[in-house]
């Protein structure tokens, strides 16, 4: 059963290798095209300011005990008073990212560019593979596999009698699509743009709401109990000095 299919070497020369080569070339091309299309993102003043504000507020929270109570209270009021505190976000003003995206055509444009550079070559290569190589058995894996792998390895061949260790051309395409990432990071350097998983992460992180982190920081700040740590330092200094004198 395992040896009843003999693969023509021409299949290797004209299907298996060209497919891989084309996939690599398209990946490289896509990298450079997306590099060309990438627009310089000018960050918003507000976003930078909020980021810095959060850092500063976090510092205040972490090291609150190192400054006198009066200074701490002044700062806390500055950050979180209800009228014009920096961390205070008026209700309903924190716009959600969706609305922001619609209001800012640049953002939508950027997303579209990113998506286009990803989707167009993929559909094209998929159509190309489907058109020219549909139904080919392109390779054979040197070890047997269970039936469950049939969907993964023999996409495009609807024969249940073929041994699972044979790989169809369409499956070979998919394997290349997902398996070449390591190769790309070798060729194009570490931060190559073809890394799809990373892009997914970015997209999900896209909807982060900065006003939410401001609100959270404000709440954290509000519950900080200020206890000046400095009086303790006098005793500690004393012990340090005692040690020095007695030495």
């Amino acid at each position: 059963m395992a040896d009843d299919l003999v693969l023509d070497t021409a299949i290797r020369d004209w299907v298996l290798i060209p497919l891989s080569v084309v996939m690599v070339l398209i990946g490289v091309l896509r990298y450079f095209v997306s590099k060309l299309m990438r627009s310089d993102q000018v960050p918003d003043v507000k976003i930078i300011k909020e980021g810095q504000l959060v850092i500063r507020a976090r510092n205040l929270r972490a090291a609150a005990n190192f400054i006198p109570a009066k200074s701490f209270r002044a700062r806390r009021y500055y950050y979180s008073n209800e009228e014009n505190g920096l961390l205070h976000v008026p209700k309903g003003q924190g716009q959600n990212p969706q609305a922001q995206m619609f209001s800012d055509p640049n953002m939508a444009m950027d997303m579209m560019k990113k998506n286009l550079s990803m989707i167009i070559p993929q559909t094209l290569t998929f159509a190309w593979v489907n058109f020219f190589f549909s139904g080919f058995v392109a390779a054979k894996i040197p070890f047997p596999l269970t039936q469950r792998f049939r969907a993964m390895l023999q996409n495009g061949i609807d024969l249940s009698t073929v041994d699972v260790s044979y790989v169809s051309s369409r499956s070979w395409y998919f394997l290349n699509l997902f398996g070449l990432r390591g190769l790309f990071s070798l060729i194009l350097g570490e931060e190559n743009a073809t890394d799809d998983t990373q892009r997914m992460m970015q997209m999900s992180g896209f909807g982060m709401d900065p006003s939410k982190s401001l609100g959270a920081e404000k709440d954290n700040l509000d519950i900080v109990q200020h206890e000046w740590a400095l009086p303790k330092f006098e005793q500690r200094a004393e012990t340090v000095l005692k040690k020095l004198v007695s030495r």
Partner: peptide, 13 residues
């Protein structure tokens, strides 16, 4: 005085 004490503590006198 307290902050001088803190400095002493941090610098080891």
């Amino acid at each position: 005085k307290k902050y001088y004490a803190a400095t002493i503590d941090l610098t080891g006198g």
